[in-house]
Design a protein around this nucleic acid. Structure first.
Lengths: 345, 345
DNA sequence: CTGAAAGCGCTTACAG
DNA sequence: CTGAAAGCGCTTACAG
């Protein structure tokens, strides 16, 4: 005999009372509760989760699905681990645990999620690396699992998401460059179907138009979201007939590769070419000249993600009266030397 | 009605037969099995994990406990995500899923693990960031959860672990430096209780003795395992009365901070001071002059971890006849320019 | 080869 | 305030 049965026997009371005491039900004699709690502590009893889950229909676990793509692995500040802290600080208020579900590289993310959802390992999900068309969203809606997507998507319609303010970043970068006299501004965008690529390029285009600058497709350089992609972007930019005087990067690590390619060509960022990077991150901090980029708190993003997710869950929604609103997450300009010069002066 | 019951009703057979068919039992008519599989696929049925777990006493989940300390978060190549790929490639052979359990910063790792273990969320655990004295190991032994520790410890006695070859790295680094004429070799070691610190310093000491060089405690510089710690190490080294001509670093990111401090002092690595770093990693790749350090495959380490863990699990041990041996994981020297000069020439 | 039934460890109406 | 009992969704001896 083990589990709650053993504990109950040891205390010489019924398992029902033990369960009620442990779960903080009000209808338990305070002395009884104390005895139960003490005995549980002493014997190291914690309720078997499978038993609880089966009975309650709830696992008290929130899943964070991550993809261990090369990009994610090489990203130098562990984006997800950073977000994790903020997530947990909120989830722990409700005794919810966070588990990270790493989708194997060789498995289709949709199939992986389907399996995890069907097994009912988690009560709710956070998905990331949202694609422009993302079947996972339809799946989660269909199976009625509460979820929030980190990244917008055209799939799913009315679900909840949180996304970085790509529009704001693109507009700020373009405004800043134009104010320094730049007219030919290139952009390095991801070559895959990730949704942020579309949003970013679109915002860039609109910002240009606002300044009366015609959009030139040749200045949209499609590369991998990696350091290598940044190198490639530099390479392609140098081969353009009509060269840009500035470039905006969409992914943090691109700056490193770009600097490398520029260095090879004897081009100095901030003197010969204006460069604006995306999210500030540790590796980029060592670039010389320092990179103008954008800053955000991963922890705060985690808090927002958790609160939004809980707002979509009927059992917790009452604590989050703001409701399950989709959010554009702002980034703050961190000016550096890489775009310091003016063309007009 | 839902779950297996619904599926059985739909097929007009008993739930027992459905279960047997789905689980690949031999005693099922092949036609029946095909019908069941097809219907499950069609209706999207996957067995509820809580039901299975409760009945079987097994969750088919392996946990990887990680700590989201600042060090881990800032580590630039996502060590754990790198290991994850190798782990999953082995675990998937046995239909085991890997879940990452991130211990919140404000929770004691021992308490966290205790809770996770008691809830029986996983069948086995991989723990990391092993401390010299690590109560988690005693806990896992006591509760008889199969596990493997990534990192040696003095706790626990006869458990299975895998650890990097700190001895080999220290010996190789010292040998290399001594062969270039260095006699005063400093070492930057972690200031906390993580076990690798003890091992590394010990190996360093023995290597020196092998060359007849007296151990000088002043040359063991205790700093945080971070970029900032590397800066600090440089700072403290410069204040030594009798300056070393070489320094060995114990943590990958230290090199970046060290280079920064050296740069401030006008000291050029590889010309004025020999520097040997620890594990090769993306951020260090951009250091000038290039850093002499050590290389390893995170994926291969993941494979080894998984195979070792499975060998400790009775249900899988037969597939891993090598058994559950503790392993010292080798690193390969990746020579750079940072220790290129000789004192003797 | 298949079905009926027991039981994994819990929580929770229900009765007292 | 407490106990006895049902039942969550499965798997697996057991009987046929």
């Amino acid at each position: 005999m083990k589990g709650i049965r053993q504990l109950a026997k040891h205390l010489d009371i019924s398992i029902g009372t033990v369960s009620r005491a442990l779960n903080g039900r009000p209808d338990v004699n305070e002395d009884t509760r104390k005895r139960v709690l003490a005995a549980a502590e002493e014997l190291g009893y914690v309720a078997n989760q499978s038993g609880r889950s089966l009975r309650q229909g709830t696992t008290n676990v929130i899943g964070l699905m991550i993809e261990s793509s090369k990009e994610t692995v090489e990203n130098s500040d562990n984006f997800f681990l950073g977000v994790t802290g903020g997530l947990q600080s909120v989830l722990s208020r409700h005794k919810l645990d966070l588990l990270m579900l790493p989708c194997p590289n060789d498995e289709d993310p949709h199939e992986y999620l389907k399996r995890m959802v069907a097994r009912r390992i988690v009560d709710a999900m956070i998905i990331s690396a949202t694609q422009r068309v993302d079947k996972r969203i339809d799946l989660l809606i269909k199976t009625k699992i509460p979820f929030v997507a980190l990244g917008r998507s055209t799939s799913g319609g009315n679900h909840t998401w949180i996304d970085l303010d790509f529009e704001g970043v693109a507009a700020c970068a373009v405004d800043r460059l134009v104010s320094k006299g730049h007219r030919r501004i290139a952009i390095a965008a991801p070559s895959n179907d990730i949704n942020l690529g579309y949003i970013f390029v679109d915002a860039y285009r609109k910002s240009l138009e606002r300044h009366g600058i015609a959009f030139d497709p040749a200045l949209v350089i499609r590369v991998k979201s990696s350091e290598q992609g940044g190198y490639q972007a530099g390479h392609e930019m140098l081969r353009l007939e009509s060269k840009p005087s500035a470039i905006i990067l969409i992914y943090e690590l691109m700056a490193i590769g770009l600097y490398r390619r520029l260095n090879e060509a004897g081009i100095v960022p901030g003197r010969d070419l204006a460069v604006i990077g995306f999210r500030e991150e540790p590796r980029g901090k060592f670039l010389q000249p320092s990179l103008t980029c954008f800053r955000m708190s991963l922890r705060d993003l985690g808090v927002e993600l958790a609160e939004t997710l809980l707002a979509t869950m009927p059992a917790y929604a009452e604590h989050y009266p703001k409701g399950a609103r989709s959010t554009i997450w702002p980034l703050e300009l961190a000016p550096g030397e890489s775009d310091a010069f003016s063309l007009t002066s």
